[in-house]
Design a protein around this nucleic acid. Sequence first.
DNA 1: TTGGTTTAGTGATTATAATCACTATATAGG
DNA 2: CCTATATAGTGATTATAATCACTAAACCAA
Lengths: 207, 207
Amino acid sequence: MNNRNIPKIVIDRLPWYLQTLNQMAREGLSIVSSLVLAERLDITPAQIRKDLSYFGEFGKQGSGYPVFHLMDELQTILNINHIWQVAIVGVGGLGHALLNYHGFARHGFETILAFDNHPNVIGKQVAHLVVQDITHLEDQLRKKAIKIGILTVPARQAQIMAERLVSGGVLAILNYAPITLHLPPDIQVQSMDPVQSLQRMTYFLPR
Amino acid sequence: MNNRNIPKIVIDRLPWYLQTLNQMAREGLSIVSSLVLAERLDITPAQIRKDLSYFGEFGKQGSGYPVFHLMDELQTILNINHIWQVAIVGVGGLGHALLNYHGFARHGFETILAFDNHPNVIGKQVAHLVVQDITHLEDQLRKKAIKIGILTVPARQAQIMAERLVSGGVLAILNYAPITLHLPPDIQVQSMDPVQSLQRMTYFLPR
DNA sequence: TTGGTTTAGTGATTATAATCACTATATAGG
DNA sequence: CCTATATAGTGATTATAATCACTAAACCAA
């Protein structure tokens, strides 16, 4: 086991492997070789083998990796072998859509709190939740010991709301606002800006 | 000018630089040094200077980069110095949210077509568009010469819809479905899977 | 059981990317 | 104008990541 400190980029690929293994499991596959998995992901088999080797020996020579076992291992590695409770801040169009998205729960992320600052939304039921007044944010986060927040507020409010999430004890933020958040280095942030993603593609399109 | 073929990861950072420059411009800043920009982005100044040097010399020694000029240059490099027309496939909750999102238009991405296969949605007005029957997809894409598609359909329909986008002439797909699309190598794909993003963070959270 | 085939794991190698550290140029203050 | 300071651009260096290519183990068909 290749256990000198693990490159972050390896971690970034694991969820992707897991997603594909999930798909393969649903297709009834019970063993998969690095070659087959690699073809599905459009990368090299060596990459997969080396990535996995950072964490242990999960495969068998001659056959490959047992799909379910590898999924379990990846879930343990990724720290998703239990339910994570999540809070959403900002119940506009996107917040609504995310609250109604079943994918979170299906993968162990349970949205249990939703906040907004707009009187028209506060107290309203959205999907399975009643939207709470943003003034209760830190209180509620502490009370429920929430570690993960989803930020779906307008750009100009995002920084302050991110800080409030952090002061409520949140350690990881999924940021849908199109700004770069400034938070302590131990806080995890993943940004989901569709405009940036589009701009990463237009570079390669014919001019 | 450091013009041997440009690493893809450099391209990936340019939209992020641009976003921050935008913000700085709004704050009234007209010149910015690599140091100041780097602090804002939490990277090293050398990284920024080297990245930009792949494309030209945009700064002045002693002072820094003229904000507006650099923005213009980046927009030209990224091929976003004109309007891109975009089609959305799938007008569920997320599709609705994206159609109502003004950020696309504000950054030169104009959503001009929306498709769905559900009778309850077809013909309905959503934001500025009337949702069209998915059967007209390829026709309409060709007619309007659309090169960029946004995919917001359920996972099981995503692959086939991606293929239909491509056969309608689309060259870049922003994929919100939680699957890995298999498309010709010249097709650009950016995936936006919130579950994967959450899983990339949980690894670093206390267990 | 045996021998050819498949495949994981991994040290060595190569490729890619980030950083350093220097040069040349511009700025700003007196 | 002159000098001290700031900063871009970049070749050289270091760090990081991907791939190669080998070994040992497991599989499988006859």
